[in-house]
Design a protein around this nucleic acid. Sequence first.
RNA 1: CGGGGAGUAGCGCAGUUGGUAGCGCACAGCGUUUGGGACGCUGGGGUCGCAGGUUCGAAUCCUGUCUCCCCGACCA
Length: 479
Amino acid sequence: MAKDGITTRAKDYSQWYLDIVDKAELSEWSPVRGCMVIKPHGYALWELIQQGLDQRIKDTGHQNAYFPLFIPQSFLLREAEHVEGFAPEVALVTHAGGELLAEPLVVRPTSETIIGVTFAKWVHSWRDLPLLINQWANVVRWELRPRPFLRSVEFLWQEGHTVHVDEADAERETLMILKDVYADFVEKVMALPVLRGRKTESEKFPGALRTYSIEAMMQDGKALQAGTSHNLGQNFARSFDIMYTAPDNQQVYGWTTSWGASTRLIGALIMAHSDDDGLVLPPLLAPIQVVVVPIYKTDSERADVLAAVERLTTGWKGRFRFKVDDRSNLTPGFRFSEWEVKGVPIRVEVGPKDVQKGTVAVARRDQPGKEGKRFIPQEGLNDHLEGLLLEIQQALYDRALRFRDEHTFTATTYDELKALVEQGFVRCYFAGGDEEEARIKEETKATVRVIPFDQPEAEGRCIVTGQSTTRQVVFAKSY
RNA sequence: CGGGGAGUAGCGCAGUUGGUAGCGCACAGCGUUUGGGACGCUGGGGUCGCAGGUUCGAAUCCUGUCUCCCCGACCA
């Protein structure tokens, strides 16, 4: 194990994560503290994430647009909670064109405010609604402790912004995005099961009425928020005068939502599936799904093998994302390892013996070593690979789900919570508010990740206050 | 920003009373190799994080500063 200088998960989980990012060539730090260079392999992951989300966002009726990177500082000040929430992590441009600016410009930490000002101009009538807009953008938040993908000063994301006629429609949008866009994508494409639910008051987005999120479990038992969706109520509409004329000719404020998913998803992908040998990618998200490694000694073997590879891969374009690695200066073993570190789901080896016997060796990344490697007939290879990709996709999801189940507990007392939250998610009755949450965070480092949508029928006793409640929450440490 | 550790070749490191920088990997060339990280020979590559100071002389001692990693407070 632990080839190529990858620290094992058991020894140091944080270092393992950094090693994977490094060895799989996903990103590296830039000369600017906290800002990362996303390398081609990492960016290819992001492009596939973008495609999957963009498709779903458009399929649900949204259009893409683009808003400016710079926001007049005064815009941010208009929504009280919003300013307070983002003030500490905002980067400010004070000089430009060689002069002091009359009004400093904020580098967007998120775009509610500038989009709010724009939407006020776009919305006139109830017939203009719902207004359904999304943008793909970079944002900047001056984080104190950056980590690649999980917390970088600049990161890439999509942020959806919508306006609706009433609260019910805004709420429908907020939940639809969470379930049909985010949860669907993360579970089906990233092979990562998520909890869906609502955030508590203290965890919600600054300026939101209600915040919802999906939460995934990493291999160290910690939670990672994989997508978040906010019903902003009329807070931003009031601050930015987003008003429309209703059918009864009354001027009324619209109801807005916003929702986002970021390059942090790449961090989730790494921490959920990868192992001590390197990255492990779900086939649907793998930039290279199948790598073919030709093996040969002599020139005549080389010719035979490459001819077989040429024949076998005919028709793969459009069917598989694949690569033929015929670098002759590297031994097969070296090439095997390299693609394992990079997480390629399937490796096909073609050697002289295969040419003779009409076989190939097929190794699956999710089962390292010998047990994941089989010799199979060349006949019917394409169908076999197609089936295997789906099988691996499912196997990764199942494995992640099993892991989450095994690390999810219920607690009936605060002492149980304290002990169990060290190992994963803890579900329990909880009737407390901000104060109780703050105290628990202080004492255990864990927070309420989500109030799951699926709630029990029966009442239970709050683990802190002891009062009777029907509300269960999930506590966990988080990224 | 608080506590701990570290900055010497692309990467990982050595460099002990201060005396003018070395090893492994990687890289380049040639040859032999190739079913789980091949080998030989030859070669290129450094203002020792940066700025001051002490000294005849500093990678080494002193001061300041920057960056990275780990742990805390904040977060997609």
